[in-house]
Structures are given as C-alpha cells and as structure tokens.
C-alpha cells in the first residue's frame, strides 16, 4: 500500500508533500496507518471542502493506492472528520520531519 500526501496553502502558500510505501515502514507504524484508513472507510470518502476557501487555510490531498484500487480525497482542517484529522496529523508530522523544497 502506498500513500501520497500533499499540503498546500497556509499563510506561506508553500507546498509540502510526502510519499510513503507502507512496506518500508516499521510494521507497527504501517499497521497503525492501515487501521486508521479502515476506521474511516477511506475508499468510500468523498472530497470535503468548504464552499469558499478559508484565508490562509491548508488544503490537503491524500491518495491511497493498493494493488487493485486508487482513491484520492481533498479536504481542509475545517471540514475533516476527527479520524481523517488524525491521519492528516500523522502524515503532516512525517512530511515536516523530512521537509524538502518542492
């Protein structure tokens, strides 16, 4: 399973991204991400965006790919469900600790 994560917007307007291959993660971390995705039924989620953009708000795009299916959702801090927020928090922390210019 692969996860790609992109964060854009914010007061800096700076893009940050992350590409994860779960097979390269320690098993407990990979398992924890799989559980989060199952819990929120990720592959059934739809885009959840406010009707008008929030000034300086972050915009997130998350894609999960398995051998058989690929699904992308777009969301924001203001519209994400608690479980989706937990996933965003996890992916943001990983992206922030491996920051690279885009």
């Amino acid at each position: 399973m692969w996860i790609t994560f992109e964060r854009s917007g914010g007061i800096m307007g700076r893009k940050m991204s992350l590409a994860l291959d779960l097979t390269n993660l320690p098993e407990d971390e990979a398992q924890s991400l799989r559980l989060l995705l199952d819990e929120m039924n990720f592959f059934a989620l739809q885009d959840d965006l406010p009707t008008s953009p929030v000034p300086d708000g972050f915009h997130y795009a998350i894609t999960v790919r398995t051998e058989t299916v690929t699904h992308t959702i777009h969301t924001t801090d203001m519209s994400a469900s608690p479980s989706l927020r937990a996933l965003i928090q996890d992916l943001s922390t990983r992206a922030r600790t491996q920051r690279k210019p885009i």
């Binding site: 007061i11 801090d77 928090q89 922390t93 922030r96």
Partner: peptide, 12 residues
C-alpha cells in the same frame, strides 16, 4: 491549535 501546526488562519 493542533499539534505541530505551522500556520495561522482566519476561519471567517
């Protein structure tokens, strides 16, 4: 707001 949140915004 949140943990490790490197931003500020106006939510309306």
């Amino acid at each position: 707001y949140q943990k490790g949140y490197d931003n500020a915004f106006w939510d309306g």
